[in-house]
Nucleic acid binder design. Structure first.
Length: 856
RNA sequence: GCCCGGGUGGUGGAAUGGUAGACACUAGGGACUUAAAAUCCCUUGGCUGUAAGGCCGUGCGGGUUCGAGCCCCGCCCCGGGCACCA
């Protein structure tokens, strides 16, 4: 039942149809329903306390249009939504107020849900997921156990931001200008034990499989650059220091090996101490200390002037036996390659700068094809000063030198990646607990014997207080491992999360077979499987829950698996994934990594999670600046819904410009699309609230309107498929303008038009559809088809050009020959004057479109 | 510095190498109205002309082409990403 309001009362119409959809479960994605599947996914939001930002409904409207269009086109559509609800803001709120993060998170989710429902999106609410729900994160933890058992999770000491005053580890975004965001206290780098995921083991596949996905080029390129594969050689340089062994370096330019005039070690390189002469020891130690005090940012940012110090020792170049001095300098990073380089100042900008500063030798070994370029010369050329290799092209030189090194056992071809392993732990409360218990070696061995399939080939251990501790995985059957209630959300003070204070949860007797636990304060339960352990206090980063949520949507309540095989097969991966470009690297790379691990486990059938990706652009404030509270230029969707309605907001967001563009919000433009909806209302409904008197079953409509309707059907469909919503709306506006000028309209014409409008402005379309005699929901009616014969016309407008300049046009019969067209053009009164006294040299004729007369 | 993306009226934007400025906003004029709102009609890139029309015009400079907003070369500006990765 429609509302029967007389005027376009969106305040009544919108809630009415929202309840209708909810009550009828109009958008339920039934597993067995007919038609080809179509899975369209939004990047799910973090439910912040600030509520929905105008950028959210932009992307969500786009996917909603696609979802509604696909349903009408006969597809079985999966269009879900959920909440990425772990994260820092909730934790900070908890610290400030003392209320449990779960409580505040649920409040925020309720608000987000209300706002999203008010926009009329066609989500299947039965599939809503929440990453903080133990029934959800149980599977996040399960995936972690799979990574662990495959040797893809390990612990390592990693530098993190440490704030002594707060007694807390801070995230990058909590550190502003070297001080804590909260309180402005100084922060420092501190090495803490961290969980790390071995994403580098998948570097080659993450790179190679980019070719199989339909993503924006820029995003693919960003991932490529992030993975940063480079090919070269590892070379062993002999060392003069006794017992120091060879020095391993990585280079992409083995062809310049003869130009190596010094070596550089990163300050953290393990060989620095052994290679430092007593005379240089003080200087080197001072330099190391200085480098250690610098943050990553300082080391990269402030390193405009290269600095370094000589160790006093020498290495031996394997190709020519030359003695080369070994330096320590922080322009070489320990984290890349081997942490040591051969410096070729003649052909590397950084080495050149350093050599100039410290007056080191510069020997050119590549000759440019054309003389001229100054050193350092980075380009191609032939080898010189390179002994037997002189005269070779550099590419050939690379191959030959690498082969020589290999045959002599002093080097080999090598590939390096910029990609680093993924720091996966956070010293926080509000995240998924890592399902690991630390035990001693003997207990570990016993447990590993009981459940060998759950354990990695190499135990994960770390040494603390002189004792080796072993990482014991909780049995998957004991998941979820929930967060304990804690008295305070303030970090432990010594670098651990607040979980370190939850003693009964933390210090336990663990049954290694079942995963059952009892507080260690109590007696050891009887039975051989009980061991003494301490739980891992780190939690997972916010990325974890979003790495696999698209899989859970296919089977969100499954208690026995992350999703059933049947559901994964039926719905597959998203056919369209829409979200901000700010996730171009991290989220999308992490999710691809997890997906590939799951693929290798046989848990998912595809190698890539997101075959088609699209980024919506950012909506800027009215002032053209990024929307922010401090600028006061934030637009709240609630305000617009109250003043103009959700349909208007949706339409306007799509009309603003191309979806992918960054575009400023202009409050005045809203009136335009609102007027458009009102115009359509008036075309359908008369002033008394009945169907407009000009509408009838068999009205005589102009042929032009019929043609325009078919053109509109074609364009709206094509534009939706190409995600060009702004031009689809323009076309509908053109149609409504024409409709208005018709004295009589056919009911069927209006109904077809309302079907086109429905994905964009579903509430008003649903209302008018039913008032004109359609049966709700609109999407149940098959999407209108256009008739190409109706679009083709026998008259074409032929454009006349003289020397490429537009000189007029004329309606002509379609399919004219060039001779006929030429005769018409020559006799056209607007064209003729431009031909008089000139000679016709050439005619370019595009039938039914344009004829260009070239004269002189 | 390197890698991308983009510069079109007063504004947001439209345009498979084929009429630049669709659609909308703003502004101005008119109709309806006692009046206003709403609605409808007209004008709205610049210069020039009584008019018909003409000339110019898609950041700047070149080029390819019968024809360039679109392709190529060289610049300028704006936005994004990366940044000592050997």
């Amino acid at each position: 039942m429609a509302t029967n309001c007389k005027e376009y009362e969106f305040q009544r119409i919108e809630p009415h149809w929202q309840s209708f959809w909810e009550e009828n479960k109009t958008f339920r994605a039934a597993d067995g329903s007919p038609g080809p599947k179509y899975y369209v996914l939004d990047m799910f939001p973090y439910p912040s306390g600030a509520g929905l930002h105008i950028g959210h409904p932009e992307g969500y409207t786009a996917t909603d249009i696609v979802a509604r269009y696909r349903r009408a086109a006969g597809c079985r559509v999966l269009h879900p939504i959920g909440w990425d609800a772990f994260g820092l803001p909730a934790e900070q709120h908890a610290i400030k107020t003392g209320t449990p993060p779960a409580e505040n998170t649920q409040k925020n989710i309720a608000n987000f849900r209300r706002q999203i429902k008010a926009l009329g999106f066609s989500y299947d609410w039965d599939r809503e997921v929440d990453t903080t729900d133990p029934e959800y994160f149980r599977w996040t933890q399960w995936i972690f156990l799979q990574l662990f058992r495959r040797g893809l999770a390990y612990v390592d000491k990693r530098p993190v931001w440490w704030c002594p005053q707060l007694g807390a580890v801070l995230a990058n975004e909590e550190v502003v200008d070297g001080r804590s965001e909260i309180g402005g206290h100084p922060v420092e780098r501190r090495n803490l034990r961290q969980w790390v995921l071995r994403i580098t083991a998948y570097a080659d596949r993450l790179l190679a499989d980019l070719k199989d996905v339909d993503w924006p080029d820029s995003t693919k390129r960003m991932q490529q650059a992030w993975i940063g594969r480079s090919e070269g050689a590892e070379v062993l340089f002999g060392l003069e220091a006794p017992g120091a062994g060879p020095l391993r370096i990585f280079t992409t330019r083995p062809d310049t090996l003869f130009g190596c005039t010094y070596m550089v070690l990163a300050p953290e390189h393990p060989l620095v101490a052994a290679l430092t002469n007593p005379a240089q020891a003080a200087a080197v130690a001072a330099y190391q200390a200085q480098a250690a005090a610098k943050s990553d940012l300082e080391r990269t940012d402030l390193a405009k002037d290269k600095s370094g110090v000589f160790t006093g020792s020498f290495a031996v170049n394997p190709v020519n036996g030359a003695r080369v001095p070994i330096w320590v300098a922080d322009y070489v990073l320990m984290g890349y390659g081997t942490g040591a380089i051969m410096a070729v100042p003649a052909h590397d900008e950084r080495d050149f700068e350093f050599a100039k500063r410290y007056d080191l030798a510069i020997v050119p070994v590549i000759e440019p094809p054309e003389p001229g370029p100054a050193l350092p010369y980075i380009g191609p050329g032939r080898m010189v000063n390179s002994g037997a290799y002189d005269g070779l092209e550099w590419a050939e030189g690379k191959r030959r030198i690498t082969a020589e090194l290999e045959s002599r056992g002093v080097g080999k071809q090598a590939v390096n990646y910029k990609l680093r392993d993924w720091l996966f732990s956070r010293q926080r409360y509000w995240g998924e607990p890592i399902p690991i218990v630390w035990v001693d070696e003997a207990d570990y061995r016993r447990a590993a014997a009981l459940r060998p399939e759950d354990f990695p080939a190499q135990p994960v251990t770390f040494r603390q207080d002189g004792i080796d501790r072993y990482a014991l995985p909780i049995p998957a059957s004991a998941l979820p491992l929930s967060l304990p209630q804690v008295a305070s959300y303030i970090p432990s003070g010594d670098g651990e999360s607040p979980l370190a204070n939850a003693t009964p949860w933390l210090e336990i007797w663990l049954n290694v077979s079942t995963g059952e636990a009892a507080p260690a304060s109590g007696p050891r339960p009887s039975g051989p499987a009980w061991v003494r352990g301490r739980r891992e206090t780190n939690t997972m980063p916010q990325w974890a829950g979003s790495c696999w949520y698209y899989l859970r949507f296919t089977d969100p309540r499954n208690p026995a698996a992350l999703a059933s095989e049947a559901a994964l097969k039926a719905w597959g991966t998203p056919d369209l994934y829409v979200g901000g470009a700010e996730h171009a690297v991290l989220h999308l790379l992490y999710a691809r990594f997890w997906h590939k691990v799951l693929f290798d486990l046989g848990a998912v059938p595809q190698a890539e999670p997101f075959p088609k990706l699209f980024h919506q652009g950012i909506i800027l404030g009215e002032d053209g600046a990024k929307m922010s509270k401090t600028r006061g230029n934030v637009v709240n969707p609630d305000t617009i819904i109250a003043s103009h309605g959700a349909d208007t907001l949706r339409l306007y967001l799509m009309f603003l410009g191309p979806l992918e563009d960054m575009k400023p919000w202009n409050p005045r433009g809203i009136e335009g699309v609102h007027r458009f909806l009102q115009k359509i209302w008036r075309e359908c409904i008369g002033p008394e609230g009945a169907v407009n008197a000009k509408v009838s079953e068999d009205a005589e409509e102009s042929a032009a309107l019929t043609k325009l309707l078919h053109e509109t059907i074609r364009k709206v469909g094509a534009d939706i498929e190409a995600l060009r919503f702004n031009t689809a709306i323009s076309q509908m506006m053109i149609f409504s303008n024409a409709l208005q000028k018709e004295p009589r309209t056919r009911r069927q014409t209006l109904l077809a038009f309302l079907q086109l409008l429905a994905p964009f402005a579903p509430h008003v379309a649903e209302e008018l559809w039913e008032r004109l005699g359609g049966a709700a929901p609109v999407q149940a009616a098959p999407w209108p088809k256009f008739d190409p014969a109706r679009i083709a016309s026998s008259d074409k407008k032929l454009v006349f050009q003289v020397n490429g300049k537009h000189r007029g046009d004329q309606l002509v019969q379609a399919g004219l020959s060039q001779e006929q067209a030429l005769a018409i053009a020559q006799s056209n009164p607007k064209v003729a004057p431009h031909l008089s006294g000139k000679t016709l040299r050439k005619v370019i004729y595009v039938p039914d479109k344009i004829i260009n007369l070239v004269v002189n």
